[in-house]
Design a protein around this nucleic acid. Structure first.
Lengths: 223, 223
DNA sequence: CCGTTGCTTCGATGGTAAGCGAAGTGTGAC
DNA sequence: GTCACACTTCGCTTACCATCGAAGCAACGG
């Protein structure tokens, strides 16, 4: 049999479920009630939807006390969702950006950064020759390896077989590439750990402190 | 506003529409009645679906006399569909291949080859160092350029700005990479033009003649 | 002209599934 | 224990939309 793409697409086709899934693109695990709020539905219906999403393996769940924390089942789901976002955004006749301006500046895309800052970062890394871009390929150059080692990155842990180190990810608001992959993940975690930026508690936005923004832009030579 | 991924997914979520879209993954333009047959529905309902798919810009149409030829709106749609196929195939607990064995051997994936033969081709090109693979990147080496020029390929027409020359495309039946991009397109067209293989008139299968298969395997040093 | 074929529009029907209220289960706090 | 909270199950309603029959329009062939 040909694979059943209809039932998979049906999971995303419901507006409430779509809202939940995009909320989970923020990367962090959310409880059932939080997701219900996000989708503007009652807890009952949310429970119904979540059961379906679990059954179809788009989500995974972790029980903690009386809470249930839901998460995307993996990067493959996140990529599918971003893919859909890019397409639906480009195809809609009304081409508007995110309504929340801070989302436009910088936001989380599952496990890496997206938005204006991320696009600028990508361009800067390209310009400095740290990464090499071929439309939809992207590799880390020797100079890039040295650079990230000097920043304290452990390339041995970043290098995994299952995931590419750096991968261009189309930005649905900017329509340009930004950096995904384990390196993109490392950059986000590093910036958060150094206190340069904080993740918004409810939205997917990333808020840089004034000092953090200077440090970040300086570190990566972003103009 | 965040992009409306739900309505895009809804287009694929209907089983009849999904059948039509997968049929169109064969790459050739099909008439409304052909698509209706493919989806096992009457002409009326098919017309209804096709109107929606046009409105949402998943398809484009060309009128020719009293026939209407429908096609996928572009490579981006084909990629989305293949993406969904890989995911839904991998996620389904019953992991079965295509029911039609000839589909498993070789089939069309929008504009390039997929299936066992295509995967073997990809491996051979890798082994000979004609293409370089980095998990999900892929570039054509200088040796590869020379090789394809010797085969009569015009690299200047193959090189376009809008599309990568070679791009690995995950095979949902083999779960391994095969070659997409303009180079993958060229290889398919070349094999068809040389009479090595023919496209099945109704399915997406590619049928090699005994002589054609020998020639193809010999040309690309497939073992 | 008329018949045939390809596609569309209209109206009616039916099935599916999203939604919620109410009640039920389970976990933790006091 | 009792209450509060998180989540689930049940039953019901409702709304949407895929489907088809019938009729209509358009294009070609005689």
């Amino acid at each position: 049999m040909e694979p059943d793409i209809a039932s998979l697409a049906a999971m995303i086709a419901d507006p409430s479920r779509a809202k939940m899934l995009t909320a989970l693109l923020g990367g962090r695990a959310l409880t059932a009630t939080e997701l219900a709020l996000e989708a503007d539905i009652t807890a009952q219906t949310a429970s119904n939807h979540l059961a379906k999403l679990l059954e179809k393996e788009l989500l995974v769940v972790r029980k903690q006390g009386r809470h249930k924390y839901f998460q995307l089942a993996g990067e493959h789901i996140a990529r599918l969702l971003e893919n859909l976002m890019v397409l639906s955004h480009n195809m809609s006749s009304i081409k508007t950006g995110p309504n929340d301006p801070s989302l436009k500046v910088s936001r989380v895309c599952y496990d890496h950064m997206a938005g204006e800052v991320a696009v600028a970062l990508y361009d800067s890394l390209l310009k400095q020759g740290f990464i090499l871009d071929n439309i939809d390929h992207c590799t880390l150059s020797p100079a890039g390896e040295r650079f990230f080692i000097s920043l304290g990155a452990d390339l041995t842990t970043i290098t995994t077989k299952s995931r590419p180190i750096c991968r261009p990810c189309l930005d649905w608001s900017e329509r340009r590439s930004h950096l995904a992959g384990t390196l993109g993940q490392w950059i986000l975690n590093d910036a958060l750990q150094k206190g340069w930026a904080e993740r918004d508690l409810v939205t997917r936005a990333i808020h840089f402190s004034p000092r953090g923004k200077r440090a970040f832009f300086n570190c990566y030579a972003i103009v």
